[in-house]
Nucleic acid binder design. Structure first.
Lengths: 233, 233
DNA sequence: ACAAAAGTGTTACACGTACACCCATGG
DNA sequence: CCATGGGTGTACGTGTAACACTTTTGT
């Protein structure tokens, strides 16, 4: 039994994949393999399969591109301009993924000609993908102001200066490092390690790890990580 | 030109329509007219038409049911369990609408056998609609903790006690009325009227109106309306 | 010894919270 | 006159923001 007389549409999943290299946010893009717009840069996406949940589709696509599984990913928004894809009407359900850029397995991606772009130097993208990326940036700022989500972008061990850079870069501002470290340490989410990271400074900065249990439990709690979230959107 | 070899899916828009009657939150439901599950209660929904934006579809559906246009409505989430509709696979993009229950034009809705249910006394719904409603409640609590969105549920003129009830009911708690009124008045969003509402008390409570410009401008600003937003989700 | 980045403590202010009484009116 | 709900002010504690110097070590 079917619903008769109704139009069926293509449904695509597009992934906005963010990384952070210690300097700036990066976006993973691919060079589209099929016409139209072949060779133009694009978000990684694909069509939803007949018996596939959208979350599954997003994970399938992410794995195909990066080789990674079990990364943080969340449904963001569904785009539906009738003419957004000139070939045929397609609805795009978008997912934002945050990955530790160091875990990225480049070799696998070669088949898609994937490349990390600094977030401020993204090229022209196909269809409405520029708009999607722009919305994803806002989404991330919003989310990160309330939840400790940005840890997903860092390696297992990270330093406070790295974390600070992560926040400063996202909000394009600078935070007082004393207040910042007091605030993040007061959450109890960080566990100080004995080793130091000695690459990027002479003195060296202590590594921290996430307190995984507290992190999971407190994830949905409001954290007010960002001081005055007036300028977020 | 078309994408070949891909499956096209039905895409439905379902509207979660919230109202507030001064006592409690209500949900507008219809009795499904078509098989299967005919006569069972359901969210108001419909299939997306070939050249229709999802936002348009949501507005079309809302208008058909309530007669209302230009109400506050926002896309919430897209549900995609492959078997969520037993007839045929259908993706549901959901929209939350907040309406002033007094503006609701009942006569138009008669054709759908629509009815307002108190939010805590909702019946069994078809498909995954109970889950959708549950998510919509969380969504509303989250959103309202940060943005002055609940005004959309009140008439043009409303009193502080009404507003207080609106918040208390949503968070199932009680707020100190002195602190509450100081907080909302300090936003500058409210304009005191000279008349009083004298139905619900002997003394009468002053009416307030929204400062529309400030409301629009400040809508995306964080407002921290709710004191300790720990128990929101 | 000096340059460069890490780490730490105090004070002032704003905001949030707790709390109790008077006011206006209709019955 | 009294019961009901509306309206207001203050004192205290917590958290946020501003601010500068010392430490470490590689060169």
């Amino acid at each position: 039994m079917k619903y008769s007389g109704q139009t069926r549409l293509l449904v695509a999943v597009d992934c906005i994949i963010f990384g952070f290299d210690g300097e700036c946010y990066k976006l993973l893009l691919i060079q589209r393999g099929m016409a139209p717009e072949k060779k133009k840069w694009s978000l990684m996406g694909g069509f939803v399969q007949p018996d596939e949940h959208l979350d599954e589709a997003a994970n399938r696509i992410l794995k195909k591109l990066t080789g990674l599984e079990q990364v943080y990913m969340e449904q963001m928004y569904t785009f539906s301009q009738p003419d957004r894809d000139p070939v045929e009407r397609t609805i795009a359900v978008t997912y934002v993924a945050l990955i530790d850029i160091n875990k990225y397995q480049q070799q696998i991606s070669e088949e898609f000609h994937a490349k990390w772009f600094p977030l401020n130097e993204t090229p022209q993208l196909i269809f409405d993908h520029n708009e999607i990326v722009s919305k994803a940036k806002s989404w991330l700022r919003y989310k990160a102001a309330l939840h400790p989500i940005l840890f997903e972008l860092l390696p297992n061990k990270f330093t406070l200066p790295q974390l600070l850079a992560l926040y400063e870069d996202l909000y394009e501002t600078s935070f007082d490092k004393r207040n910042f470290s007091r605030k993040v340490l007061s959450t109890g989410l960080l566990i100080k390690q004995k080793e130091k990271e000695k690459e990027s400074s002479k003195k060296g900065a202590f590594y921290y790890k996430l307190h995984k249990k507290k992190y999971k439990d407190g994830f949905q709690t409001f954290l007010n990580f960002v001081a005055k979230p007036e300028n977020i959107l």
